[in-house]
Amino acid sequence: MKLDVDYDEKRKIRVGTSGRVKFRIRDIVVEPGKPVSLKKDFDPDFTGGFDDKAGALQQVASNVQRLSDMQEMLYAQDTYALLIIFQAMDAAGKDGAIRHVMSGVNPQGCQVTSFKSPSAEDLDHGYLWRASKALPGRGMIGIFNRSYYEEVLVVRVHPEFLAKQKLPEKTLKGDIWGNRFKEINNFERYLRQNGTIVLKFFLNISKDEQKKRFLSRIDEPDKNWKFSAADYEERTFWDDYQKAFEDMLENTSTDWAPWFVIPADNKWFARLAISEVVSAALEGLDLRMPVVDDKQKKRLMDIRGQLSTELD
């Protein structure tokens, strides 16, 4: 399948004074229909062959400005919406990535939704219901901090959560995960066909790096609030989650809504990669400021003339 946005060799991240090519965006995209092994295919410590952190952060700042400029056109054109989805294990850096990459975006044109445990009202509807309510409108950027993908991740790792969803017995006896993959793909195809661009980022952190960040949250008083015993308990299911992530990536990376596996052991590189992908996707839309027709221009000139003759 051909991706909607062509992340070919011409689209590469260049960092540092030399401008030397560091890596291709295609290096981190999950090819639709291809089997995924996180251990073999994606290195959490990958940095494109360089360690120019200062240069990377300069490029992030440049990309933030690009995003700000394109957001204005996205809003003015009022044709497309952008939905950005983040999934990851705890401490992978989702919140920091959102904060840094989207720092230059106008808050009036952006909304962030964090999906916690479903409420009683949520459980009385299908699992896509609460996500549908939070979708961005045309001209807007929506960010999902976790998403409906929890339904094929945490719910899969913890079957007791599935039991609370009051599903028909026939559904429970069928291939529920395969069916949900198909439903999600169809949902995202519907979004794409109606003007919502879906970008999906899996922040791929190693188990060792997660351990370091957990210890930092415990040892540094200012970070204590970030840590909960539940985070540690979920760590004991690491292998189960890795398998669930692999199945998710393999079955739901499509040409209309691809997954990007972001190396997350180095936060600076993760932010660089995310900012470049978002910029590339928006640039691929060929956004333009609306141009008024001759009739509208004449009306504007008439109003200008009337304003010019008004007495102060």
Rank of each mutant, 00 (worst) to 15 (best):
F187Q: 00
G126K: 00
S279R: 00
R138M: 10
P159Y: 14
T171K: 06
G48A: 00
K164Y: 06
Y149T: 04
N251C: 05
V15K: 00
L191G: 04
K94I: 11
Y148W: 08
D231C: 06
V152I: 09
L83T: 10
T309G: 06
R99H: 13
K40T: 14
D41E: 10
L167R: 08
A270D: 06
S228M: 03
N145V: 12
M89Q: 11
L74N: 08
P263G: 09
T252P: 07
A280H: 12
L311W: 05
E246A: 06
I98V: 12
R192C: 10
P258T: 13
K40P: 05
N106H: 09
F50I: 14
V152K: 00
E283A: 12
G104D: 07
S132K: 12
L67V: 07
Q165T: 14
P221N: 02
S308N: 12
V277R: 03
V64S: 06
V154T: 11
I13V: 14
F161V: 10
R146M: 06
L82A: 03
L135N: 13
K182P: 00
L282Y: 11
W259A: 06
D52P: 03
F202Q: 07
K170C: 05
Y127G: 04
D208I: 06
R14F: 14
V278F: 05
R130D: 08
E209K: 03
